[in-house]
Simulated scan of single mutants.
Amino acid sequence: MSTELFAGKKPRRASSPLRAPFRADSAELRRQAANMLHAFAERLQNELARQGILPPPAIELWLDVQQQFCVRDNHPYADDILAVLETPSYYLHFKNLETLYELLECANSGALAQDSHLHIGLSSAGPVAFLCVRCDRSLAWRPRNRPSGKKGSG
């Protein structure tokens, strides 16, 4: 199934915006998202393995409302995982994944829920990604105190 997205780029010689359809194939988007998710997961798991952090337990991560990485609080190595994720390249890779999953959601359902955001789960069985809606910002999405000055490679 394909969906139409419209580019609003204004040509130099035209006075009205160009409304040319851009077709996105859902199967192709799904393939790209899966490949990018596996690359993200492999890179992160290799970096964590060098530090002796291996699943289980599974790792769940997302970006909070301040666009900072969060790891499920009950993970015993949450702070170490966050230290690795503090490099800009992980953030950019994650945001690209989030965009692909949002495009997939729009292609499949025709809409995207307000306040939706990407969660990634990493386990010994492989990665999983899903969109989630922030339901209670006052409790579930508190900023975590993180050690400062620690940088992961990347």
Rank of each mutant, 00 (worst) to 15 (best):
M1H: 12
M1C: 12
T3D: 12
F6G: 01
F6P: 01
A7R: 08
A7M: 04
G8E: 04
G8F: 06
K9C: 05
R13A: 08
S15L: 08
S16Q: 14
P17D: 02
L18E: 09
A20D: 09
A24S: 12
S26I: 11
S26A: 09
S26V: 15
S26P: 08
S26N: 01
A27F: 06
E28W: 10
A34Y: 09
N35E: 15
M36I: 03
L37K: 14
A39M: 08
F40K: 01
A41N: 05
R43I: 04
N46C: 00
E47S: 14
L48S: 03
A49S: 10
Q51C: 04
G52R: 05
I53G: 06
P55M: 02
P56C: 06
P57K: 10
I59C: 01
L61P: 04
L61D: 02
Q67S: 10
Q68C: 00
F69Q: 01
R72N: 15
N74G: 08
N74H: 03
P76T: 10
Y77W: 15
Y77R: 05
A78Q: 13
A78S: 15
D79Q: 15
I81Q: 04
I81L: 02
I81H: 07
L82C: 07
L82Q: 13
P88H: 13
S89Y: 14
L92C: 11
H93E: 03
F94G: 12
N96M: 10
Y101L: 09
Y101H: 12
L103E: 11
L103K: 09
L104F: 03
L104G: 02
E105Y: 02
E105V: 01
E105H: 10
N108W: 09
A111G: 07
L112Q: 13
S116C: 14
L118G: 04
H119A: 11
I120V: 14
G121I: 01
L122G: 00
A125Y: 07
G126R: 13
G126N: 11
A129K: 06
L131Q: 13
C135G: 12
R137C: 03
L139G: 02
P143W: 02
P143R: 13
R144A: 15
R146I: 13
S148Q: 05
S148V: 04
K151D: 03
S153E: 12
G154D: 02
